[in-house]
Simulated scan of single mutants.
Amino acid sequence: MKRLGLIGNPLHHSLSPEMHTVFLAENGIDGEYNRLETEAKHLDERIFYLIQNKYDGFNITIPFKADIISYLTEISDDAAQIGAVNTVKIRDGKLLGYNTDGIGFIQSLLNKNVGIENSSATIIGAGGAARAVVFGLIKNGIKELTIINRSADRAFALIQDVRKLTRFRRAKYIEWDENSIKQASQDTDILVNSTSIGMWPKVQDTPVLFEKNMGNCVVVDLVYNPLKTEFLKMAKDRGALCIDGLDMFVYQGVEALQIWTGQEIKFDYDKLRRFLIQKLENYGRS
């Protein structure tokens, strides 16, 4: 039996256990996926527990996505570039680290037939989620990147890492202000909110107030609670193709399970989205 779980704190609103339970059942895999809420002072004990109890792997979320790196025997190129790990495979008592967020983001675009190669993208934010998005886009042929962030130092650090770790040179920083974001939304093919702005309970917040037509832009919000953020609602009203954060969540989970099992994971996309949306409505805002 596959023993899997999620480490983080807090975890009571996470949809990962429900989603992975569906994946396991639909693919005929005998397994379990457990919530393993862990305090920072007990992370050592938790890792030892998982190894001793023959876990096959685990996801890791806030606040441990960087802390876990010191426990790893190996780390994937993607995770090393991003500087964070969200998936760990346990093999012969050793921890192998991966980051599936970038793959999840790219698949969410491909699922909506969004062209990436030779397109331009603007990313709002420069944190861990933004790093996953940026390196995923570069790997898939993006032509030009713009980073908008409140902290210039963090944005420049990301751009420097891009230049150091890849051959990509067409990345720039724009100062965070209302006019900058408005102008960027007119000049880019793909606009991504990688921040938590608009997440429950501050659902009225948005990083920008759109005013002009956006019919040529794909707008993505990595937030998935609520699914229809103010950011996406305004963009949709102005003609943009909009993608919520639930697809990225689903596809990063698919990739994680494929890492743990070594097999292709199949699922009914529409059925799973309905199931997860119902779960969000039932307790995601409690």
Rank of each mutant, 00 (worst) to 15 (best):
L95T: 09
N99V: 14
D101H: 07
G104F: 06
I106V: 15
Q107Y: 14
L109N: 03
N111P: 01
K112T: 05
V114A: 02
G115L: 15
E117D: 07
N118T: 13
T122D: 00
T122C: 15
T122E: 00
I123R: 00
I123D: 00
I123T: 01
I124V: 14
I124L: 13
G125Q: 01
G125I: 05
A129Y: 07
A129L: 08
G136S: 07
N140R: 11
G141K: 06
E144P: 00
N149K: 06
S151Q: 12
S151M: 12
S151F: 13
D153G: 03
D153I: 15
A155P: 00
L158Y: 08
Q160R: 13
D161T: 04
K164F: 09
T166I: 09
F168R: 01
F168P: 00
F168D: 02
R169N: 12
R169K: 14
R169A: 05
K172D: 08
I174T: 09
E175T: 06
E175M: 07
D177V: 04
S180C: 05
I181H: 07
I181Y: 07
K182W: 08
Q183V: 05
Q183I: 08
A184R: 11
S185Q: 03
Q186H: 09
D187T: 11
D189A: 05
L191M: 09
N193L: 09
I197H: 08
M199S: 09
P201F: 13
D205T: 03
P207D: 09
P207N: 12
P207K: 10
E211S: 08
K212S: 11
